[in-house]
Deep mutational scan, measured.
Amino acid sequence: VTVHVDGVEYDFDNPEEALKFAKKVAEDKNGTYEVHGNQIRVT
C-alpha cells in the first residue's frame, strides 16, 4: 500500500498501518485522505 503525501510516497506492507498513518497525517495538516485501491492520497 502506498500513501502519497505532498508528492512523497510512503510504502507500507500492512494496509492497517498505512491507513493509520494516512489518518494521522491528514489530521495533523487538517486535510483529508482518499483511498483508491492500494493507493491512499492525503490532501
Rank of each mutant, 00 (worst) to 15 (best):
A18Q: 01
E27G: 10
E34F: 12
K29A: 10
A26W: 03
K23I: 12
F21N: 00
K20L: 12
Q39L: 11
T43S: 12
Q39G: 05
K24P: 00
R41V: 15
A22I: 03
N38T: 09
F21M: 03
I40M: 03
R41A: 07
D11S: 15
A18E: 00
Y33A: 03
P15W: 15
E27M: 13
I40W: 03
D13L: 10
K20C: 14
V1I: 12
F21D: 00
V3S: 00
E34W: 11
N38D: 08
E9L: 13
A22P: 00
E16C: 14
D13H: 09
K20E: 13
Q39D: 10
N30S: 08
P15A: 14
V3P: 01
E34K: 08
Y10P: 00
T2H: 06
K23M: 12
A26K: 03
H36A: 10
A22N: 01
L19K: 04
G31E: 04
K23W: 05
V5I: 10
L19Y: 08
G37P: 04
K29V: 14
E27Y: 13
V35Q: 08
N14D: 14
V25N: 05
L19I: 11
H36R: 12
D13I: 10
Y10F: 11
T2P: 01
G31S: 06
N38S: 09
E16G: 07
V5E: 02
F12S: 00
N30K: 11
V35P: 03
E34R: 08
F21Y: 07
E9H: 12
K23C: 09
P15G: 09
I40A: 01
P15E: 13
P15Y: 15
V25P: 00
E17Q: 08
K23T: 07
F12R: 00
G7M: 05
V25K: 09
V42M: 04
V3W: 02
E34H: 12
D6C: 12
V42G: 01
K23F: 05
E34C: 15
V5M: 06
V3C: 03
T2D: 01
Q39P: 02
E27F: 13
G31P: 01
D28P: 03
E9C: 14
N38K: 06
A22W: 02
V25D: 02
R41G: 03
N14S: 12
K20S: 12
L19S: 03
Q39C: 14
T2S: 08
K24V: 06
N14I: 07
D6Q: 06
V25C: 14
N30E: 07
A18R: 01
E9P: 10
E9N: 10
V25Y: 08
Y33V: 13
T2A: 05
N38E: 04
D6L: 07
E34D: 06
T32Q: 10
F12H: 02
G37E: 07
E16M: 09
K20D: 11
Y33P: 02
H36K: 12
G31W: 11
V42R: 01
A18P: 00
G31A: 09
E17S: 09
F12N: 00
T32M: 09
Y33S: 02
A26C: 14
A26Y: 03
K23A: 10
E16A: 10
G37V: 05
E9Q: 14
V8C: 13
D11F: 15
I40N: 01
T2M: 06
K29Q: 11
G37Y: 05
V35H: 06
L19F: 09
D13T: 11
V42K: 01
V1Y: 15
Y33E: 01
V42T: 03
D11E: 14
E9M: 14
V8I: 13
T32L: 08
D6W: 07
G7P: 02
K29S: 12
V3A: 02
E27D: 10
N14E: 09
N14H: 07
Y10T: 03
T32I: 10
E16R: 07
V42N: 01
Q39H: 13
N14P: 01
K24T: 09
G37M: 06
P15V: 15
E27S: 13
Y10S: 02
L19R: 05
A18N: 00
Y10C: 08
E27N: 11
V35C: 12
V5A: 05
Y33W: 11
K23R: 11
V8F: 11
E34S: 11
G31L: 08
L19G: 02
R41E: 08
V42D: 01
I40G: 01
T32D: 06
N38M: 06
A18V: 00
D28V: 10
V3R: 01
E9S: 14
E16Y: 10
V35E: 04
